[in-house]
Design a protein around this nucleic acid. Structure first.
Ligand SMILES: [Mn+2]
Ligand SMILES: [Mn+2]
Ligand SMILES: [Mn+2]
Ligand SMILES: [Mn+2]
Lengths: 219, 219
DNA sequence: AAATATATTTAGACACCTCTAAATATATTT
DNA sequence: AAATATATTTAGAGGTGTCTAAATATATTT
């Protein structure tokens, strides 16, 4: 199939292409891949050769449907493995990403199908991200960033945007987790910090924090 | 740590070095790795550079203790994953090897420790091979090849030498599996074929078969 | 519109791992 | 011991994926 490197590029392009439906820039891709722009250009040409992306010089890359499909399958595997690690192997949500980055490249249809069954067909990974189904469909959850919600509202935490160990550990320390009820008491105008309450305890969080927590407003 | 290729070479050397305690020949290694002798020589030099093997031109390679340790850890991972696939994910013993070949290269101490715990510290893989412990110790089972046993004896199947899909499927078809009681009724002198009984049913097997089944004599 | 800054590509190199063909060393026959 | 066969290494090359430095294209300022 595709090489480890190719798979990682496809995934990176997919993630970057999310918001705008236009081409992903070489520089953005270089940053995501932690490599140099020139290396990206090289790889893009190879991917283009294999019809995994469409590429016009200086205009960025877009995934072809073939490329998108490959990317989604890798993301499916990544997220299923993350569920496995947390639910079955006692990993915490800040420890899984690195290992899942490796496991997502294992090639075996049967493996991933059986893993899915074994985990009882989970819909979400430990960070609240949806798990694509076998056909590549991804459920779009109605979720908003906490910093966009007005004071007075009560919400449920349904995901995180930043999935870095640092951020996740901060959340653990402050009792913020998926499913937790977050009530917004105040929003400071000048720095957009918030006073929230979780488990009947008050907590002040910066915009940096509130803009990385996904919530669903609770009726 | 080590590259995928390096790990596969280390494992191959380990397996070939088993019987004799002398160097593994370039050609033997080339065959095992399904590659060319010249490629082997190249790689051996790199492994030697990293003190993973000792190498004298024209005299073959031996694993250093560093190399042996690396090899054993990979084998530990391979066999633990095989147990996982069979016990938890409904794989049959002839399907696991290919996937385990990939999974054995995943790098995570915690993963393998938790997997071991999750599987309740298995001692054997689905083919009856011992799983090395965390320190690299490998239990030596008392086992003999079926073709070395005399007629009249009753034995238990404890392992297989050939782990190819073909052979394992043949065994499935004939109800031969780990733990099965095998009674030896006759041994034909001229072709060393055997008449055995399993589950009260008689079966004639060739030397090719009997010399790939490990058994333990039953009292 | 020209000048400047930024983004992207190209050129040339290198590490890793593989290959074929040729050279050399070791083992086996005669 | 010489001849032959086999095993191993060396030489030279290619693919993948990366890098730095230089060239070129696009975007932003003035
Ligand atoms: Mn992840
Ligand atoms: Mn995730
Ligand atoms: Mn195996
Ligand atoms: Mn096995």
């Amino acid at each position: 199939m595709y090489s480890l490197s190719e798979e990682n590029y496809l995934k990176a392009i997919f993630h970057l292409q999310k918001q705008p439906n236009q081409g992903v820039s070489t520089n953005a891709l270089a940053e995501q891949m932690e490599t140099k722009a020139s290396s990206v250009t090289d790889m893009i040409k190879r991917l283009s050769e294999k019809d995994l992306v469409s590429y016009k010089k200086y205009k960025g890359v877009k995934l072809s449907s073939k490329g998108r499909n490959a990317a989604v399958q890798i993301i499916r595997k990544h997220r299923l493995w993350e569920v496995f690690l947390v639910d079955q192997l006692n990993f915490s949500w800040d420890e899984v990403h690195e290992v899942a980055e490796q496991l997502e490249h294992i090639k075996s249809k049967k493996l991933i199908r059986e893993l899915d069954k074994f985990l009882d067909y989970p819909k979400m990974d430990p960070h609240g991200d949806p798990i694509p189904d076998e056909d590549g469909n991804i459920a779009v959850a109605e979720k908003l960033l906490l910093n966009e919600i007005n004071p007075g509202k009560t919400t449920v935490c349904v995901g995180v945007k930043d999935t870095s160990t640092h951020f996740l550990k901060y959340l653990d320390k402050n009792n913020i987790a998926l499913g937790k009820i977050i009530h917004i008491k105040e929003k400071e105008a000048f720095d957009e910090s918030m006073l929230i309450s979780i488990d009947h305890k008050e907590l002040r969080i910066s915009k940096m924090v509130s803009s990385n927590i996904y919530v669903k407003t609770k009726n």
